[in-house]
Amino acid sequence: MEHGEVLLPGGRVRLVDLSRPLGPTPGEPAPPHLRRITHEEGAELWRLTFGIPESALPAGLGFAGEIVEASTHAATHVDAPFHYAPVSEGRRARTIDEMPLSWFVGPAVVIDVSDLPDGCLVPVEELEERLEEIGHTPSAGDIVLLRTGAGEHWGEEEFFWRGCGLGREAVLYLVERGVRLIGTDAWSLDRPYPVIGEEWRERRDPSLLWPAHFAGMEREYCQIEKLANLEELPPVGATLVCFPVRVERGSGAWVRAVAFVPSEGDERRA
């Protein structure tokens, strides 16, 4: 897919779309439903509402549209602290419409863990090693993105089962260093839900139930899930812009995530 380039005050950048389309897909257990309004139906609506005949319209057609019924956690989306629990850091957890816009733009740090097996819980030590490999220490404002490899299975039923996830300690490690937004190309920042369910039936260990999400009760942070095209980004050097739709009192919201990658050979840096 061609994303194009733009010239910004800091230099020329390549745009990389990191978003999944909002629509029905086998990888969503509760897929969105889209009802499409045709141009003919748009013209009929104006006739019924305003008495404007189809013959008065160019080609006898009105405007097309869509009516969407979907979870705010479908496709590429941001989870607000309220999604994890009603309380975060001892006070009322904020909803998506209350989050600062500054949280959703910043340096992207891509950590490739696609070599780890599906269902793996990434420990803090592994996270530190991967960061050391790319020569980066997380700092305030960084947006850390996990490339688990699950994104390669988008559009397939098995997408729900793919990828590895973070635990409580790994999330807190990043948040305590100023990271407020953590992302993944998988269905969830936690390990795949079916894996968590199977493990519960076998071990009955409450500490293994969605530890990444529930870490948000201790420290306020957001996560962005179901990202695309992370393989097109460098480990460091890109800028991510991912403002969520302002859903009133929402636990999350859809987002069009776009990375700005400095173009090779440009003397200026974005």
Rank of each mutant, 00 (worst) to 15 (best):
T184N: 07
G119N: 01
S188P: 00
R130V: 08
G27T: 11
G119I: 01
G197F: 06
I96K: 05
T38E: 10
L45H: 06
I224H: 08
R268K: 14
E125A: 08
W187Y: 15
G250E: 00
E198I: 08
G155K: 01
G167W: 04
G65Q: 10
P81G: 08
A238S: 14
A85W: 07
V78C: 03
T38C: 05
C164L: 07
G135W: 00
G237C: 09
E158Q: 11
R35Q: 07
Y84I: 03
L233F: 05
P123L: 13
H39W: 09
A215D: 00
P81D: 06
W187H: 14
I143M: 14
L57E: 03
P235H: 07
P194G: 06
V241L: 14
F160D: 13
L8H: 03
D79A: 10
D142G: 04
V124L: 09
A259S: 13
V195A: 13
L34P: 02
L121G: 00
L18P: 04
E248M: 07
V241M: 11
I37G: 04
V122S: 00
L189S: 07
G51F: 12
L121Y: 08
P244I: 02
R91H: 10
E202P: 01
L34S: 03
G178M: 07
L146E: 00
P117Q: 00
T137V: 15
F160S: 04
L230V: 01
V110F: 04
H33Q: 06
M99K: 02
S19V: 04
L209D: 03
A270V: 15
G250K: 00
T25G: 14
F63V: 12
F214N: 10
V78E: 04
H213G: 11
I182E: 02
S207V: 09
G23S: 15
V122D: 00
E225Y: 06
E98K: 09
C120H: 15
D79G: 06
F243V: 04
H153V: 05
F260H: 10
F63A: 14
D112G: 03
E98L: 03
G183T: 11
G27M: 06
E218N: 00
G197T: 05
L57R: 09
T148M: 13
L227A: 01
P26A: 11
